[in-house]
């Protein structure tokens, strides 16, 4: 089943100060597919992911070169309102980071900052998002309690629901399960698979079984370079390069 390209990068270089962290990355993300970024720690996966919604803008003295397109939107266009980009490209972080607000307000936050005033609509979408993130049953009776009282796994699903509530088209996830126990991890993985029906997902993971379980496409990064990218099944069973094979068979990294 073919799928059109939702987002792509072409010749992307990235620098922290003068230290180059990404070299000439060209990668395509097909619509409604899960793309996994794997590679050893420090190879630039997070840096790459944070380029896609311009989150690296927050870090002083960083510089990017090359092209990133979200459909027809040029992500690096100086005239682009980065806020409108981030509405379309949501993000879930490595450590669950709910706001110190109620569960309801956490989910409603994205709608409120984007100007949604209609109370009924907000309430409705809070429920939908929590259901999509498979956490509604656990929190429906405590929507007005602090989100900080939830367990780590629940907090992370809440953060996913929070991202979904602004109805993004692309969801970036940076090792979303690395801080969670196996059961919570399994829930997140099931969630990713079900969400990909409606969303384009790009997930960073250093867990190769996880990449194999959840993703359609896998890209292997090493030292700031994209080494190999292919259908997940192919990459894990018949890697083209020795470097990739060494990594996925655990000979290094």
């Amino acid at each position: 089943m073919e799928s059109s390209t939702k987002m792509h990068t072409k010749g992307l270089d990235f620098y922290y100060n003068d230290a180059q962290a990404l070299y000439d990355i060209s990668l395509e993300f097909p619509q409604n597919r899960v793309t996994a970024l794997i590679g050893p720690s420090g190879c630039g996966k997070s840096t790459f992911l944070r380029c896609l919604n311009r989150m690296n803008d927050l870090i002083p003295k960083t510089r990017a070169k090359g092209e990133i397109m979200l459909e027809n939107m040029d992500v690096f266009d100086p005239a682009l309102d980065v806020v409108s980009l981030r509405r379309r490209v949501g993000m879930v972080f490595q450590k669950p980071n709910p706001f110190p607000k109620t569960i309801f307000e956490n989910i409603a936050y994205g709608m409120r900052v984007n100007g949604v005033r209609d109370k009924a609509l907000i309430a409705e979408r809070v429920e939908t998002s929590l259901r999509q993130a498979a956490i509604w049953e656990e929190v429906k009776d405590r929507l007005n309690e602090s989100a900080l009282g939830l367990s780590g796994g629940q907090q992370q699903r809440l953060c996913i629901a929070r991202a979904l509530a602004v109805e993004p088209e692309v969801l970036l996830m940076d090792e979303p399960a690395s801080a969670l126990d196996p059961i919570a991890t399994q829930k997140i993985e099931e969630l990713i698979i079900s969400l990909s029906k409606a969303l384009t997902i790009i997930i960073v993971t250093h867990n190769m079984q996880q990449a194999a379980r959840v993703s359609d496409i896998t890209a292997f990064f090493y030292m700031g370079k994209l080494i190999e990218v292919n259908n997940t099944d192919t990459l894990f069973t018949k890697p083209e390069l020795k470097q990739t094979e060494d990594y996925i068979t655990g000979r290094f990294g």
Binding site: N97, G110, N114, A163
Partner: peptide
Amino acid sequence: VPQTYREASLGLGAT
């Protein structure tokens, strides 16, 4: 205030 709060908020399209 943890930097992660700022990132979460900006990531949701807040100014």
